[in-house]
């Protein structure tokens, strides 16, 4: 029953084709790992030699050879993390709760609210796609210039909060959606209001997911350079108030690489950045594993 053009004749070449193609696809998968190993390996290996306790605890002293350590840049980074997360978390979590728990029920009743909800969704989607230099420009125009905050932690923090707001909202939404409907129905059936249900039943179950979003945001702020390049001023002095300018670690890497010859110090700082990002990713994975374990149970 072997008709012309059927199986047996070209099976060998099809098998060969598959073998070649699969090798290429394996190569693509392996290459992504290899690239990561090369980038991270190179930065960490080159940077590790300049990382000492002194490097971490002394302030930069400037100059063409980039003398000094990075203590003030660590402090500025931490300030900005606290500031941006402090601004974006309540707003983002609130928005996420609204979009998952309230929007549908409220939108059913009124056409205006339905429009409001879809506008809010559009806002989140758009904000998530805005490139960071635009946040920088905006922060520069509104906070630095118009509001006369100058190049400052506050101005940079407000602009940075816009960057992470969609991250917090989206992860909150996902975390809330992962909470089984039966939890809510159980509580609502007992006569609890939606807010009581959200507060007492839904939010506690969603905490690990929301934490993931916050940790993710920390990573974004630690990594961010463009926004702060335009809004933070770049001073390497120790920030003393919200209105002080400053320089984050990422920004310090940029200045060292572009304006000095101190590639070793740039590498050292970059290595610390990369290690922090690896730790942050590990924490996120831990949270999401916890989350999936909880949902599985």
């Amino acid at each position: 029953m072997n008709a012309p053009g059927s199986g047996r004749s070209n099976l060998g070449s099809r098998r060969l084709m598959q073998r070649i193609a699969f090798s290429l696809v394996w190569a693509a998968g392996s290459l992504s790992v290899l690239i990561l190993l090369i980038v991270v390996g190179y930065i960490v290996a080159k940077g590790l030699s300049s990382i000492t306790w002194q490097f971490i605890t002394t302030p930069p002293r400037g100059g063409i050879s980039g003398e000094g350590g990075i203590s003030t840049t660590i402090v500025a980074t931490l300030y900005l993390v606290v500031l941006t997360v402090g601004i974006a978390t309540p707003l983002g979590v609130g928005a996420g709760i609204y979009l998952v728990e309230y929007a549908e029920a409220m939108a059913r009743k009124s056409r205006i609210i339905r429009a409001v909800v879809s506008t809010a969704r559009f806002g989140v989607e758009t904000l998530a796609g805005v490139p960071s230099i635009i946040f920088g420009l905006f922060g520069y125009a509104l906070f630095v210039s118009s509001m006369h905050l100058g190049f400052s932690l506050l101005a940079a923090g407000l602009a940075g909060a816009c960057l992470i707001l969609p991250v917090v909202i989206r992860t909150t939404e996902e975390a809330l959606k992962a909470v089984p409907v039966s939890y809510r129905n159980g509580s609502l059936a007992l006569g609890a209001t939606r807010w009581q249900t959200t507060q007492k039943v839904v939010l506690p179950a969603a905490i690990p997911g929301i934490m993931t979003g916050i940790v993710l945001s920390v990573g974004r702020i630690v990594s961010e350079t463009a926004i702060f390049y335009v809004t933070l001023g770049g001073s390497y002095r120790m920030p003393t108030s919200l209105l002080s300018g400053g320089r984050t670690m990422a920004l310090h890497v940029y200045y060292l690489a572009m304006e000095t010859r101190a590639f070793d110090k740039a590498m050292g700082t970059a290595a610390i950045l990369v290690i922090s990002i690896i730790i942050i990713n590990a924490v996120i994975n831990l949270f999401s594993r916890k989350l999936s374990a909880r949902i599985g149970a």
Partner: peptide
């Protein structure tokens, strides 16, 4: 309380569109 919380949260959800608007406006 439930109702006012709902509207309050709605305002929070609108901050992202406010941010988009402000970014567009000021740039």
């Amino acid at each position: 309380v439930d109702k006012s919380v709902g509207y309050f949260l709605m305002l929070m959800a609108l901050t992202s569109i406010l941010a988009v608007f402000l970014i567009g406006f000021f740039t």
